[in-house]
Design a protein around this nucleic acid. Structure first.
Length: 226
DNA sequence: GCCAACGTTGGC
DNA sequence: GCCAACGTTGGC
């Protein structure tokens, strides 16, 4: 089992506490809502698969360029995903409650855009799908891992991950720049990207897309780069 | 429960 | 490398 390290999501000051174990009630494991205005990934675990049209779409960020975090390279590009056995990998390292809650809302076979962040050319590279629903992220217990979380206990893991599988590259790269231009225009016209999380929740490394957002972005594939 | 200090994200 | 945006921590 490969374990690509991604760097996803903000672990603000995750390390310094640990020993003091202060733990205010901000221990918001379940609270931090998963809601982002217009999307609705808020399924109760109970609602399993009842129905077909309950599918959600996602955008997941990863860094394609080498960068050391606590001495470990956190690079993980879409090419790295393609190079994995079966082109599958676990999406570990998410240390932000909102992002984690989205991971937990993901269902088998749902599709996600693979977004390259913190790099020369940020933007959407391709498509992947969820092949294993949320389960404990083992890296939270590994002391040498950049995303080690000493406050998380084995019998009550804080952080989750999913497994993803490469589906395909987009027919062309959709840059952040292009998405931003659309977003700006759509804010005025009420178009599909008017409230895309990429811009309204800037730092979220795992975010939901509405059907309209997803379809619109896919339609860009067929157009000329702007 | 407020909020300043601090740390991270991620585009530029 | 800079730094704006913003999430988290922890004193009060």
């Amino acid at each position: 089992m490969p374990r690509p390290r991604k760097r996803l999501a903000g672990a603000a000051g995750q390390d310094k506490k640990g020993l003091l174990g202060k733990r205010t009630k901000t221990e918001n494991t379940e609270n931090t809502s998963t809601k982002l205005e217009n999307s609705s990934p808020q399924k109760t675990p109970a609602s399993k698969n009842c129905g077909k049209n309950s599918s959600n779409y996602w955008l997941m960020k990863s860094e394609p360029e080498s960068r050391l975090e606590k001495g470990v390279d956190v690079k993980f590009s879409i090419e790295d995903l393609k190079a994995q056995p079966k082109q599958r990998a676990c999406w570990d390292g998410v240390r932000n409650y909102q992002a984690r809650n989205f991971l937990r809302a993901m269902k088998l076979e749902e599709e996600a855009f693979f977004y390259h962040s913190n790099c020369k050319q940020p933007g959407i590279m391709g498509l992947m799908k969820i092949v294993k629903e949320a389960y404990p992220d083992h890296t939270q217990f590994e002391k040498s891992n950049p995303h080690y979380d000493p406050s998380s206990k084995e019998d009550n893991p804080k952080w989750s991950m999913v497994d993803v599988q490469f589906v395909r590259m987009l027919k062309r790269f959709i840059s952040l720049d292009e998405l931003k231009t659309c977003h700006q225009a759509h804010k005025a016209t009420g178009g599909p990207l008017k409230s895309m999380a990429l811009f309204t929740h800037q730092r979220l490394s795992v975010q939901p897309l509405t059907q309209e957002e997803f379809d619109f972005i896919l339609s860009l594939e067929e157009t000329e780069p702007s």
